[in-house]
Design a binder for these strands. Structure first.
Lengths: 113, 113
DNA sequence: TTTCTTAGTTGCATAGTTGCGCAACTATGC
DNA sequence: GCATAGTTGCGCAACTATGCAACTAAGAAA
């Protein structure tokens, strides 16, 4: 991955930011199971529907989620299942850090994913 | 990747958040080339060293970056090169979205504005 | 030793951003 | 008309990014 200009870095940062909320990650996780409308997502969260709508909008805005109108509902789906890889990578970081903490406690050295 | 509890989602969100800034992404990009101290990173940004120090701290805090003291300097390095995969994934999302925009513009499928 | 220099961190103040609920709105269908 | 599904404007509280200045840490010089 070569040197990037600032616009590219910003674009990437926007994608990361869209995924930097547990609520939005949970939405992604749910949509991975299949299409859902917001009204189906709502019972999974105890928050105002306007707030949930904004979280979904954030994901739509960067192109992670797409919508298809079906009567009164907006059916949502993942446009880029690639984001699941990102989640896996994030887990890698978390596991590596956890390992480091453990190894620190038991005297050893740790590294890498 | 099975259903996750809220703590796991939060942990992932923290990793994403650490990468949700163009400055921090650039730091990661630079550290991918090899160890660097903050004083070597500084010329790449036109910001106060305290601000840069805080960006680095954010990356250290989630376990993306580690440090090794060498005299007066703190040599920084990527602990989890896995984050580069995340960046690649983010590029995938960006490219997919760009493609969608292009298809829309050239009178493709959807209606939209 | 003490002082000086370089590298980095931290407290504080400020400007800007985000997340949230509430209420009002649009849009679709009955 | 009414009901359901979503969006949007507004205001507030919490958080983030930033620069400045003061600080610590380590080595070099006097």
């Amino acid at each position: 991955m070569g040197a990037m200009n600032y616009e590219e870095l910003q674009a990437r940062a926007r994608v990361m930011k869209a995924l930097s909320s547990p609520v939005r990650l949970k939405i992604v996780e749910e949509l991975d199971k299949g299409e859902r409308c917001i009204c189906e997502l709502q019972p999974l969260f105890r928050m105002n529907k306007s707030t949930l709508s904004r979280h979904v909008a954030a994901l739509r805005h960067v192109g992670i989620v797409g919508e298809r109108r079906e009567g009164v509902k907006c059916m949502l789906r993942l446009l880029t299942p690639c984001v699941l890889n990102m989640c896996e990578c994030a887990m890698g970081v978390i596991r590596a850090e956890a390992r480091r903490q453990t190894d620190l406690a038991s005297g050893g050295k740790a590294d890498e994913t």
